[in-house]
Design a protein around this nucleic acid. Structure first.
Length: 568
RNA sequence: UGGGGCGUCGCCAAGCGGUAAGGCACCGGGUUCUGGUCCCGGCAUUCGGGGGUUCGAAUCCUCCCGCCCCAGCCA
């Protein structure tokens, strides 16, 4: 279990739990569960639920189970089970020996259904799906009772047994709970609790051709596992009366269902349906595309489990629908990586610089600090020579106000190296594009400090041309342009809301030689640029980096305000 | 027009009858060999609105307004 986080805000669920403990409800026991359906990959919204369920259990000396809600074989796959297990583990949580599947309870569930039938509380209904819908009524009109509602217990028992035996066609009959067709709560209008469906189940194969529905399964599964607090999202609030009804009728252990608001994050989508569409229609490269809000996408992007846990702590838990700003997630990963990521020199868009007064074939080694936030990370040697690369952005022939970096005649510092002064600008005759800079260096400033105490306004990152390595760098931006892509409800076409610039691939980046052996998953800070991590696409020939997040960029902010205020 | 929820700073969110925590964002200012980090300061006389109860209300009552969810043999 991860260590307790520093922030520990209160929320209404903890209030309820603390009250229950005080009253010795459940003998003061706290037992939760995270119950994913294995029909897709986990995303940051699930992380909220995972952190809540496992977190609250840990905080009150309780337990949290991992349980797959696998009652619909036509949508569920073993591949998803694998990825979910991996993701929850990666996030840092441990369910001990309590990995369960609702399908483990199929036989028990069947017996409970039989019990309901015997007590006259459930019946086999021969209505078709369409007819069931018609009989259900609408939001404002009550439903009609099924003509099969008053079959005898014996007939129901016989029919249900034959449903299980496979005597009837898919969809031809259902088992329904006998509640109230006039209820204002549509979930109470004789909900279906078993359907006939001949589909291979990822665990039980073809053993069953009838499968229990969520409402019937979930409460009983919770009860079997001795769950004390069953936490779920707001849309199940309407289902709570049903949850309670089943447990009351069956007279078995009764967990308490508590609903909280699901997470919405700005500039992305969270519904499994939409994420699946992004993957299937090729808008992204897969479930683990670094632009996806999936756990696997965030992992590949370079997010740490710690940063995601901190994020989940900070967003809180409440009942109000809300949308959290992506900026908070970004803050959390910067906070973590600032402390832990080794600094490294990388030039994304190289501009050649020749140090005219530097000896032709000399290469010297300069000391660089690996992490100013953690001196125990030590130092390393950086090669320096006559020809180096700096960032194109770090030179302006005609510098605007407040631009501190290199310009004709201006002196700046090369980090851990020397002060250089720009003396000449070489341009392409045809395009006018700056192709090369000639600079002089001051040998007395070796290491980056001037003995005469003179200051420079900027420090640039750089890389030695001869000693640097080639790399590909993938820059990511918000997947969606608008903060709330679902704002326009009728516009379901991603084409209109996706950010065309969510991925920019740079192929001629130069990185310091020490990165030659960097392994996939390794995270670095590229000085002055941001945090990057090595992508699994890397090969012996070419290292590929993903930009996790940029550094905070005050200069970009200044430029933006200059651009918006200058046209006057 | 049925049922269930929710409305506290730009975004989250504490608060539970005693006079509006905190975080992000934003805006200053200081430190700095990363325009990063760090530090310091600013940022709701007011809690969707109107009435009422009370010495006292974001908290209690009441009416109104707005937003979300539900008509799968999905979860």
């Amino acid at each position: 279990m991860p260590p307790a986080e520093s922030t520990n805000p209160s929320n209404f669920i903890k209030t309820i739990i603390e009250e229950d403990i005080k009253n010795n409800k459940n003998d003061g026991r706290v037992h939760t569960r995270f119950p994913p359906e294995p029909n897709g990959y986990l995303h940051i919204g699930h992380a909220k639920s995972i952190c809540l369920n496992f977190g609250v259990a840990a905080e009150y000396n309780g337990l949290c189970n991992l349980r797959f809600d696998d009652t619909n074989p036509s949508k569920e796959e073993a591949e998803y089970v694998e990825s979910i297990i991996e993701d929850v583990k990666w996030l840092g949580f441990d369910w001990g020996d309590r990995l369960f599947y609702a399908s483990d309870y199929f036989e028990k569930l069947y017996q409970y259904a039989v019990q309901l039938i015997k007590e006259g509380k459930a019946y086999v209904c021969d209505l078709s799906a369409d007819e069931v819908r018609e009989y259900r009524g609408t939001l404002t009109e009550p439903g009609k009772e099924s003509p099969y509602r008053n079959r005898s217990v014996e007939e129901n028992l016989d029919l249900f047994e034959r449903m299980r035996a496979g005597e009837f066609k898919d969809g031809s009959r259902t088992l329904r709970a006998k509640l109230d067709m006039a209820s204002g709560n549509i979930n109470m209008r004789d909900p279906v609790i078993y359907r006939i469906q001949r589909a291979a189940h990822h665990r039980t194969g073809d053993k069953w051709c009838i499968y229990p529905m969520y409402d019937f399964t979930h409460c009983i599964s919770d009860s079997i596992e001795g769950i004390t607090h069953s936490l779920c999202t707001l849309e199940f609030e309407d289902h709570r009366p049903l949850y309670d009804w089943f447990l009351d009728q069956l007279n078995i252990f009764h967990p308490m269902q508590i609903e909280f608001a699901r997470l919405n994050l700005s500039h992305t989508v969270m519904s499994k349906r939409k994420l699946l569409k992004l993957v299937e229609d090729g808008y992204v490269r897969g479930w683990d595309d670094p632009r996806m809000p999936t756990i696997s996408g965030l992992r590949r992007r370079g997010y740490t489990p710690e940063s995601i846990r901190n994020f989940c702590d900070r967003i809180g838990v409440a009942k109000a629908d809300s949308m959290v700003d992506m900026a908070l997630l970004e803050y959390c990963i910067r906070e973590d990586l600032n402390k832990s990521a080794p600094r490294v020199m990388a030039v994304l868009r190289p501009l050649k610089v020749v140090i005219t007064n530097y000896p032709e074939d000399q290469v010297e080694e300069l000391d660089a600090i690996n992490n100013p936030e953690d001196l125990s990370a030590g130092t390393r040697k950086l090669p320096f020579s006559k020809v180096i690369y700096i960032e194109q952005d770090d030179f302006r022939e005609d510098p605007p106000k407040k631009y501190f970096r290199l310009a004709p005649g201006r002196e700046v510092r090369l980090r851990y190296a020397y002060f250089i002064t720009c003396v000449d600008v070489i341009k392409d005759d045809k395009t006018g594009e700056v192709t090369e800079l000639h600079c002089t260096y001051d040998p007395a400033t070796r290491g980056g400090d001037a003995p005469d105490g003179r200051k420079v306004k900027a420090t640039l990152h750089w890389v030695s041309a001869g000693q640097s390595l080639d790399a590909e760098v993938r820059l990511y931006n918000h997947l969606f342009i608008k903060a709330d892509p679902e704002e326009d409800k009728d516009n379901t076409d991603f084409k209109f809301s996706l950010n065309p610039d969510s991925l920019e691939t740079l192929t001629s980046c130069r990185i310091e030689p020490g990165l030659a052996e960097a392994e996939p998953g390794r995270r670095y800070q590229f000085e002055r640029l941001g945090y990057f991590c090595v992508d699994p696409d890397s090969t012996d020939k070419k290292i590929v980096f993903n930009r996790t997040v940029t550094l905070r960029d005050t200069w970009a902010k200044i430029q933006k305000s200059q651009n918006t205020s200058s046209p006057s």
